[in-house]
Design a protein around this nucleic acid. Structure first.
Lengths: 343, 343
DNA sequence: TATAATTATGTTACCGGTATCATAAAAATA
DNA sequence: TATTTTTATGATACCGGTAACATAATTATA
């Protein structure tokens, strides 16, 4: 591995001159530039990033800290981030927190030590506050993604939980449903709080009484089983919900699997809708009615926002971008597969 | 951001002593160590990685260069790699080549400049030879993943295409199929070559004549449409295949969608099997018979192998690990949904 | 007790770049 | 032509660590 000094010697100039040629800074004579370029070529030289970072304080590395790369939502986020980063000349370190605060803390520590230039983070929940405080203390630029930690003001890219929930619930009501259960994520995650609020508002607006016994909380992650479904199913006909709103895709899958195990059919017996779509590119028979979020854009715009911040274009303004979901109506919410199934 | 000198001053020792405390190298007096540790704590100090890398020549960063993070196969590879890397104290830079040799070259260049300690690469095809030569020239440890570039000897982790294909084709034959089409990936990718060979062998072994007009090639990636299906469908009854073996999951989806568009039912009219599974965690109604590969292990073991190499435990031995697939029989290959559908 | 070995710590140089200041030569201006 | 400005290049120091060698203080051994 040749260094700038090897090049300098071969081109018969000082290291500084080589540096100038590489960075196209300052004035260099035409003949000298040619000689240096030739030497660079011949020695197959490229600059050492560690050395550069040591003076410049920049690594050109971003971190994408998400909760689960196995969720197609985050896969698409990653893809968007990756694409934009390449465009802007950055590289992306990927980390999975698994919705686990300890793992998140551990990664944050590693990222600080790596001196990444900025962090795109989907916080595991409100407990992430300390981790985010650490970022602020160390002046690491960051953008919150998909979720907002209570009490933290920062650049952030969110989905429109309010609107998506509203549209899903309205759709169910239009289908004639009056008892709609909410199976939510943990209330220490902002999306869950917003979805709950929007759910309650939507019911209220339609004059449907809110019933505490139809509101549940569980984890956003993949798991087997869902006991609360047993409870739902055990309710007498007049109390049992006719539809379920799941706060994300994984929850919906767990709900449906649990219902099926009990012999309850979806949508004939109970309809089901959820937030976040599945992997359309690989799904032969899409089934669930969803509020699909523009996941790719979360990543793409997130990196743009982050780099703006890093490079100082938007130094201190706090920006909040809210991306609207798209409602895709499919079989899971239609009692009869009729022409309402637009998608 | 405090430096080792700040700590040294505060603890009233030399920088070297602080370095020794941090790295637990050499002898340090108990009292001194305590003082240094206290100073580190108080100043919230942690070592600067760029500075460290400059002397140590190690960044503790690995690169995972895959062809498409959107493919659930690679998502799981990434997850496995990530988990093992965390365990071993490395971070992972993720890059997508999109099965595109230029993009791959560009990334390789970036990775060289970043001085990553090693690369886990799923080569885009035999054209990747030059890129891999570059790695060899620069003495960057690497492990090939999922595919092997013709003429390159290196550590590598592969799926058992031979065995998987054999089992899928045998399964189809057992179901009574005699005309089985192969819809393969590009022949400049090693997995496609192996699957083709295994396909031919399996037919031969069962005494089924190989027919050139039933063998096709297309891309491994997501795309709309697949014209060759029009051709297949246009064949007279006696020449038309009764089953299709798709060389990966994306191809299978394209095949089935194209068939459905033509009004051909799967499996009633044409059966279908493929390599690589779908996202089981999120699939409510798994349909395709597949040779599922242990994708997570590809990543997990790949990182282990790579780090072994980096840290010199396995300096020059070339290891080849071949991971067996698991055949999962589902509806797509059964003419009648009967008790053969074990899964 | 004299000498050798060990322990605890410091000094210096270097990793490979770049910022800053200095300087000689060439070009522009008075 | 003398002076100022600009252009082209180099010397030096520094970024924040660590390797290698040096040295003073202890401890072990002869």
């Amino acid at each position: 591995m040749s260094t700038i000094y090897d090049v300098a010697k071969r081109a018969n100039v000082s290291a500084m001159t080589v540096s100038r040629v590489i960075n196209q800074k300052g004035n260099i004579g035409e003949a000298t530039r040619k000689r240096v370029e030739k030497a660079i070529e011949e020695l197959n030289y490229f600059p050492n990033k560690s050395a550069r970072s040591l003076t410049s304080k920049a690594t050109n590395i971003l971190s994408l800290l998400i909760t689960d790369i196995n969720n197609p939502f985050f896969t698409k986020v990653a893809r968007g981030a990756e694409d934009k980063a390449l465009q802007l000349g950055y590289q992306v370190i990927l980390s999975n927190s698994d919705e686990n605060i300890e793992k998140e803390s551990r990664y944050i520590q590693m990222l600080l030590e790596s001196q990444v230039d900025g962090i795109l983070i989907a916080p595991s929940g409100d407990e992430s506050k300390n981790n985010i405080r650490t970022l602020i203390k160390h002046k690491i630029p960051f953008v919150q993604l998909d979720r907002e930690v209570e009490g933290i003001e920062s650049d952030v890219i969110l989905g429109d939980s309010q609107k998506g929930t509203r549209m899903l619930i309205d759709h169910l009501i239009n289908q004639g449903h009056k008892r709609i259960a909410l199976i939510n994520g943990p209330s220490y995650i902002s999306t869950a709080r917003e979805r709950r609020n929007a759910y309650m508002e939507a019911l209220k607006y339609s004059g449907i009484p809110m019933e505490e016994h139809l509101m549940f909380e569980t984890d956003y992650i993949q798991k087997d089983g869902l006991e609360l479904v047993d409870y739902l199913v055990s309710l007498p006909k007049g109390k049992r919900p006719t539809a379920v709103f799941a706060a994300n895709n994984f929850i919906a899958v767990r709900v449906i699997k649990a219902l099926r195990k009990k012999g309850i059919r979806v949508p004939e017996d109970i309809a089901c809708v959820c937030f976040d779509d599945f992997d359309q590119d690989i799904d032969l028979d899409p089934f669930l009615t969803v509020a699909a979020q523009p996941a790719y854009d979360f990543g793409f715009m997130g990196v743009q926002m982050l780099v703006d911040k890093i490079e100082g274009n938007m130094a201190d303004k706090k920006r909040k971008i809210i991306l609207p979901p798209e409602i895709i109506v499919r079989k899971s919410s239609l009692a009869t597969t009729n022409d309402l199934a637009t998608h």
